[in-house]
Design a binder for these strands. Structure first.
Length: 224
DNA sequence: TCATTAAATTGTT
DNA sequence: AACAATTTAATGA
């Protein structure tokens, strides 16, 4: 009971575990802080941790052959990622960058594998998470062909509101236009104009240091 | 609680 | 990239 409460503070999937499983999970998790702009890991590094964002914002990106940065996904508070890398026991395929001061929870591989093989609740959660991420990656591949920066901003923003990957977030998120620009791989000016356009279309409301989404469905499909 | 200032964020060029 | 305008946060009376 005690370990579960503690785990619940940093992991929304704590409820899927038994008390004993939660206690074991907690023992295998280390918490680390990263400053804004810091690299959490570079492509090719061996990072054998399943990682959760307790607070902050990170970007998952890769450098294409042409040398252009390509963002695969952004993850805000409550998001967990890297299960694919840990399961396959291989090096990271992407760069991880903290876009703002970020607090991470990192579960070591042994604990992750133990939960995967012994906890029904955890395995069920993982399947759900992988399935959802699959859909998002497919959308990402399609999105990379879209050069319209407006659509890129809209999609990146919509990902941050994925209710399955980040169940804690409501319709509001704290993110500056500069941070969103970094995520979408556009300039801050473009992000600013895009947001104003999206606001005019009635899809969202811009605020200071934050955005409230009105129509997530249309936002995710914008330009498609 | 209110006024002043500093810092952060946004809007524009 | 640089600038001005706007909003929030912090400070002290």
């Amino acid at each position: 009971m005690e370990g579960k409460e503690e785990l619940r503070r940093i992991a929304f999937w704590a409820d899927a575990l038994t008390d004993a499983e939660a206690a074991r999970a907690m023992k295998g998790i280390a918490e680390r802080q990263f400053a804004a702009g810091a690299y959490i890991c570079h492509r090719g590094d061996r990072l054998d941790y399943w990682t959760g964002v307790v607070s902050g914002l990170i970007k998952i990106s890769a450098i294409s052959e042409s040398g252009k940065a390509m963002t695969f996904a952004g993850t805000g508070a409550g998001g967990w990622f890297g299960e694919g890398t840990v399961l396959k026991n291989e090096t990271r395929q992407y760069d991880l960058v903290a876009l703002r001061d970020t607090h991470l929870a990192m579960m070591n591989r042994a604990t992750f594998m133990w939960l995967f093989e012994n906890s029904v609740g955890f395995t069920r959660f993982l399947v759900h998470q992988l399935n959802e991420r699959m859909g998002q990656f497919i959308a990402t591949i399609e999105g990379d062909r879209i050069h319209d920066p407006l659509a890129r901003v809209a999609r990146n923003l919509a990902w941050l509101f994925n209710p399955v990957l980040y169940p804690n977030t409501g319709k509001h998120i704290e993110i500056t236009q500069e941070e969103l620009a970094l995520l979408a791989g556009v300039s801050r000016q473009v992000a600013n104009k895009s947001l104003l356009t999206l606001e005019e279309a009635g899809l969202l409301v811009t605020e200071h240091g934050g955005i409230t989404v009105i129509d997530l469905q249309r936002l995710a499909r914008y330009g498609a």
